[in-house]
Simulated assay, not measured.
Amino acid sequence: MARTRRRARFTGYWLMLPSALWLALFFLVPFYSLIAMSLYDPEGSSLTGYDMTWHFANYVDVVQAYWRPLLRSFWYAALATLGCLLLGYVLAYAIAFKAGRWKNLMLVLVIAPFFTSFLIRTLSWKLILADDGWIVNTLQAVGILGPDGRLLATSFAVVMGLTYNFLPFMVLPLFASLDKIDHRLIEAAGDLYASPARGFFKVTLPLSMPGVVAGTLLTFIPAAGDYINSELLGSPNQRMIGNVIQNLFTNQGDYAAAGALSMTLMIIITIGVVLYIRRAGTEDLV
């Protein structure tokens, strides 16, 4: 009997072992390698090799050298997250409360873009916003853009690409949160003479806050580190921090600076996420 209990007690740990090994192999080991890389001697190179000198000044150097694309990345990610929140909330609300028997179909349409390559979806926006495309021609015809005006290779194009590509990450958590709301609570707000707008801000929006917080995190974090949209839809003036890191790793071979910049981005995002969650007070995220 005691032996059976002992086996049952350790069964959970044995079941966790494969995922723990996977996590250690593909997260902890690369994470340790990245930390070590960020502390390499900056005088080294990919040809001569790097020495581990615990050079913490790498972090100061990369912030001083690349603070502009770092701030630009957070600004673009914030704008894209706001755009996803406004568009995604309306879409998630419609699916949760108005779609009826079409709910499942609309959810499939939300996730359908994931069946297409991220790169192809971004290239499609390059065609849509092209200088000779119908959008630019229409805006020029109505006078919104000048004769030489353009949308491609601008901040607008980069933010639109980010908004489009990460919109499903906002819609799905919002839908999951809205779909759990008891409709009787909304009806009770109307019975208590609350207008539809007041009922929304007093009942629906507060109850959907876990979805809002989860959606903004799932959108902002990958958008801040993205480099595909700024590479294809922007110009050197719209370079984001992901482009800088990719260039340092693959073109310049400056692994110390690339590692330090990657760790800096990770640290800033982690601190921001912790403060955001504490400020939002969303213990019900799970």
Rank of each mutant, 00 (worst) to 15 (best):
P69H: 14
T81H: 01
V171H: 01
Y32T: 14
D148Q: 15
G12R: 11
G215H: 10
R150K: 15
F200P: 06
Y50V: 09
L86G: 13
S124K: 03
F74H: 08
D51C: 05
R184G: 13
L109T: 09
P196V: 03
D41V: 01
D132G: 06
P147C: 03
F115V: 09
R239V: 13
S117K: 11
I35K: 00
I111F: 04
V60M: 09
L192Y: 05
A8V: 08
L172A: 04
L47Q: 13
P222Y: 08
V212Q: 04
Y255L: 14
G161D: 00
V108L: 15
F220Y: 10
Q140F: 10
G133P: 05
V159G: 03
P42M: 08
F10I: 14
I277K: 09
G199L: 03
R9V: 04
G83M: 06
R279S: 13
G100L: 01
S117Q: 12
M263Q: 10
A8Y: 10
N247Q: 12
G259E: 06
F166K: 00
S45W: 07
V90N: 07
R7A: 14
I245Y: 05
Y164C: 04
G149A: 11
G190Y: 12
C84P: 04
I245S: 03
W54Y: 14
S155P: 07
I241K: 00
F10Q: 13
R279M: 12
A20E: 02
A189E: 06
N243P: 10
S262Q: 08
M263T: 12
I186F: 05
A223Q: 05
P210Y: 13
G44R: 08
G281N: 13
R121V: 04
A214F: 07
G12D: 05
A188D: 04
I135T: 04
A257V: 03
D51W: 09
R121S: 05
V273K: 03
T138C: 06
L91G: 01
F249G: 07
N104T: 07
M37Y: 03
D284L: 12
V110R: 00
F27T: 12
M266W: 06
Y93D: 03
L232H: 01
K103P: 05
L172W: 05
S124C: 11
K126S: 07
F31W: 08
P173M: 04
Y50A: 10
L275N: 06
L205R: 12
Y193V: 09
L109G: 08
V286N: 08
I144E: 01
F74S: 02
S177E: 08
D179E: 14
Y13F: 15
F201L: 13
S177F: 09
A197E: 06
D191L: 10
T11I: 13
T53W: 06
A257E: 09
L86V: 15
R184K: 14
K202F: 12
L109H: 06
T4A: 15
L152I: 11
F200S: 07
G234L: 09
V159W: 02
V142K: 02
S177H: 09
G215M: 12
W125D: 09
C84W: 02
F249Q: 12
Y66Q: 05
D284F: 12
D41Y: 05
N229D: 11
A92W: 00
L145H: 06
A141T: 15
L39G: 03
F118T: 08
L218S: 01
A260C: 08
I271G: 08
N247K: 07
A258L: 02
A96P: 03
F97L: 05
R101E: 11
R279G: 12
D182G: 03
D179C: 01
